[in-house]
Amino acid sequence: MAKNILIKPIISEKAEMLSETTNQYSFIVNQKANKVEVKKAVEEMYSVHVASVNTMIMPAKARNRNTRSGLIKGRVSSFKKAIITLADGEEIDFYGDI
């Protein structure tokens, strides 16, 4: 179940800053998943206690790229992002297996 809801963690500068300062972690989740399902999936997969879940749908964007043959137009798909706030004293280690 958790594998279908949680697609992948977001690892960016902003996400790292949130995890260090406010104990919040960002994930790309299934578009049809609700907050309760996301909370259960994170608690099941990482064995932590989730204090709150905030979700948002990031809109699709048009992108252009210059190549030798000319301009290539494309788009980036929309996705659902969840920001998980963990209880005090808990953390998720994404790099533990490396």
Rank of each mutant, 00 (worst) to 15 (best):
V42Q: 00
R65V: 13
P9K: 06
I92G: 00
L18E: 02
L71R: 14
M17Q: 12
N30Y: 09
T67H: 13
A51E: 13
M17K: 14
E37Q: 13
T85C: 04
S26G: 05
R75M: 14
A15I: 06
I72Q: 08
E13S: 08
K14L: 09
T55F: 01
N64A: 14
D93A: 06
E43T: 09
N66T: 14
L71H: 10
S52W: 09
E44C: 08
E90W: 01
L6M: 10
S77H: 08
R65N: 12
E90F: 01
V76E: 07
V38I: 15
Y95T: 11
A2F: 06
Q31V: 14
T22E: 13
K61I: 08
K14A: 09
P9C: 06
A87K: 15
S19K: 05
L71N: 12
P59S: 00
S47R: 04
E16R: 06
M56W: 05
E90P: 03
I10S: 02
E13Q: 10
M58S: 12
I10V: 13
I28M: 07
S47K: 13
A87T: 15
D97W: 10
E37L: 09
I83S: 10
V38M: 11
I10A: 02
I7K: 05
A33L: 06
I57L: 10
S47Y: 03
Q31S: 15
Y46H: 03
T22A: 07
E20C: 08
N4L: 12
S47T: 05
A51C: 08
N34Q: 04
K32D: 13
A82L: 10
F79R: 07
T85Y: 03
V38H: 05
F27K: 03
E90C: 00
A33T: 08
V50K: 02
A41S: 15
